[in-house]
């Protein structure tokens, strides 16, 4: 099957190239907070995009993705801290392990529908979190701390400049978005959307819904684990509350929903709104104490949902509709 390159693809390419060029601007490269915020946008967008495969395209709202994220993070950290290797084999092993565990867990859990499924996924997070807290081989509650190693791509750590992490996150973003775009355009993508719209109907049409859901979960977990590995490398530390918690799971869901579920650019838009909001409100208000930044953050989330339940992408399409309407009204008046 030959597919023509759509406008979406061009946009994706253009964005990635634009992002790749950003650090060339000295004002950005030298500003570590800006770099931090942008690369956190990349990471968050990648995380929620990986969630989007299952949660958006396939319609299975999972609160369990921090488990996969955590396994990836632990993979990288175990390789570095326990075995003194580079994080790469660990991250890869973590990703495959996460995919395997995802299939293993999801196979029974996918039988559940709606809220029962959602609660089951978060029960799984709590179980994993608490087991990792007492599993001393992987550091238990104490966690795994990186010691100082040589900087560079081999060890995937940089201490002074963030340029390395920036491009690392960008590659991750490109990979995750690329995979999702591929899924979106291929048969599996249609299967997933069919399952979302109605499992019985989909099966009647000959879609093996279990297989579709499981493969979506595996890919999703694999990508989430890679994001986790990046997170560990970026923070020089892993412990269960950091990576394997409901808090972390909520981030996957929050960003996607805020941006718009089941859309290619939703996660990026969601991250581009949420991350700066979070980081800058903390930077400017967090020091006051008393959680003023979190009060405002909470209010804004409520506001977005109440005013525009389709996410920020929804706001754009709303604006567009308004513009189109106005144009046509204008024409009529002429």
């Amino acid at each position: 099957m030959k597919r023509k390159i759509e406008r979406k693809d061009w946009l994706l390419f253009a964005l990635i190239i634009l992002f790749a060029l950003l650090p060339a601007i000295p004002g950005i490269r030298e500003n570590s907070l800006t770099m931090h915020v942008i690369l956190m946008i990349f990471l968050m967008a990648s995380m929620s995009q990986s969630w989007n495969i299952v949660g958006g395209y396939c319609g299975q709202v999972s609160f369990g993705h921090s488990v996969f994220f955590g396994i990836g993070a632990y993979g990288a950290a175990m390789a570095v801290v326990k075995y003194g290797m580079t994080p790469w084999p660990g991250a890869l092993a973590g990703a495959f392990l996460a995919a395997g565990i995802a299939v293993l867990i999801s196979w029974p859990v996918f039988r559940l529908s709606g809220h029962y499924f959602a609660i089951a996924t978060f029960a799984i997070v709590e179980i994993f979190n608490r087991l990792f807290m007492v599993w001393y081989w992987v550091g238990g509650a104490i966690g795994l701390d990186y010691s100082i190693t040589e900087q560079g791509i081999v060890n995937f750590v940089w201490y002074q400049s963030k340029v390395g992490y920036y491009y690392g996150a960008l590659v991750l973003l490109g990979l995750v978005f690329g995979v999702v775009r591929w899924i979106e355009r291929h048969r599996i993508g249609y299967y997933l959307r069919a399952v979302r719209e109605g499992q019985e109907t989909a099966e009647a049409l000959g879609v093996d819904s279990t297989k579709a859901k499981l493969s979506a979960m595996a890919v999703s977990a694999f990508l989430a684990a890679l994001c986790g590995a990046f997170f560990a490398q970026y923070n020089y530390r892993v412990d269960p509350p950091m990576v394997m918690s409901l808090d972390m799971s909520m981030k996957f869901v929050l960003v996607t929903i805020l941006g718009g579920t089941g859309t290619l650019f939703g996660p990026l838009v969601g991250a581009a709104v949420l991350v700066p909001l979070q980081e800058y409100s903390r930077a400017f208000l967090g020091g006051l104490g008393g959680g003023v930044d979190l009060i405002i953050f909470g209010l804004l989330i409520i506001l977005v949902v109440v005013k525009q339940p389709k996410g920020v992408v929804g706001i754009f399409s709303y604006l567009r509709r308004r513009m189109v309407e106005r144009e046509s009204v204008g024409k009529e008046n002429d």
Binding site: V253, I257, I295, G298, L299, I301, I302, V305
Partner: peptide, 9 residues
Amino acid sequence: LATFGLSMF
């Protein structure tokens, strides 16, 4: 999502 925001608030 909205109640998550409320919880934080």
